[in-house]
């Protein structure tokens, strides 16, 4: 790359400009990376080990569901679930962190419509197995809402951090050194050319003087 540039003054100015731009971009990207990492750690603290907990809860949930299915049948279960239907709406805002879109989920009070407060299916004809399954999955659902926000945010952020980091490194270790090299080469060539012409001018002058002396 650095070899095939024209050693002209114009090119030198251009290269200097490009170096300035690259350094500016590098600084900005570095700031972006730091901001992203900061945000990431903030979310990380909130997320803790939700995934592992969820896997455990899910296992318990599936188990209780299987039990409920064996004591009652699928039709009965779906009938019960029809009675349990709640209008759960979530509020989703999309937040923008340094160009990364992160969902912000708020749930307007699920707890108040928890099934324990208002048992909406008949006690006769259902057993504790169903209660277990319902309770388990309600808990799981609460976790899912929390998880939905933090996990997607973490994934997005980490991908963006990686991308930004790669760019920062590319600028720092490839682009800027290359441009510096180019600048050095051009100025070196220019100096060389200057010396060259200086010497030839001297020679011409000497020759002219010699000729004058002869005539």
């Amino acid at each position: 790359m650095a070899q095939d540039v024209n050693p002209t003054r114009m090119e030198l100015i251009k290269t200097k400009e490009r170096i300035m731009l690259a350094q500016k971009g590098h600084k900005l990207l570095k700031q972006k990376r730091d901001a992203l990492i900061l945000e990431f750690f903030k979310i990380m603290k909130k997320a803790k080990d939700l995934r592992g907990e969820l896997a455990k809860k899910m296992a318990a949930g599936y188990h209780s569901l299987a039990m409920a299915e064996t004591y009652h049948n699928i039709q009965e279960l779906s009938k019960v679930s029809l009675d349990l239907r709640k209008d759960i709406d979530v509020d989703i805002e999309v937040r923008n962190v340094m160009g990364v879109k992160i969902p912000n989920i708020t749930v307007p009070e699920i707890k108040s419509i928890h099934f324990m407060d208002i048992p909406t299916y008949s006690i006769a004809g259902t057993s504790a197995k169903i209660d277990d399954a319902v309770e388990n999955f309600t808990e799981i659902f609460d976790m899912v809402i929390k998880l939905a926000e933090t996990e997607t945010a973490m994934k997005r952020l980490i991908l963006e951090i990686e991308k930004t980091k790669r760019r920062v490194n590319a600028l720092e270790f490839v682009v800027i050194p290359q441009l510096n090299e180019q600048q050095k080469m051009i100025s070196f060539r220019l100096e060389e050319m200057e010396r060259d012409s200086f010497v030839s001018l001297k020679t011409i002058k000497r020759k002219l003087e010699k000729e004058k002396a002869w005539s």
Binding site: G61, Y62, L77, L84, D89, F115, F137, I140, F141
Partner: peptide, 24 residues
């Protein structure tokens, strides 16, 4: 923005979350 929650999956997943009160 108000939004709904959808469960999309195999039978146990759907049944389970319907028991948690999800409508869709």
């Amino acid at each position: 923005m108000k939004a709904k929650i959808l469960v999309l999956g195999d039978a146990p997943l759907v049944t389970g979350f319907r028991l948690a009160g999800l409508e869709y």
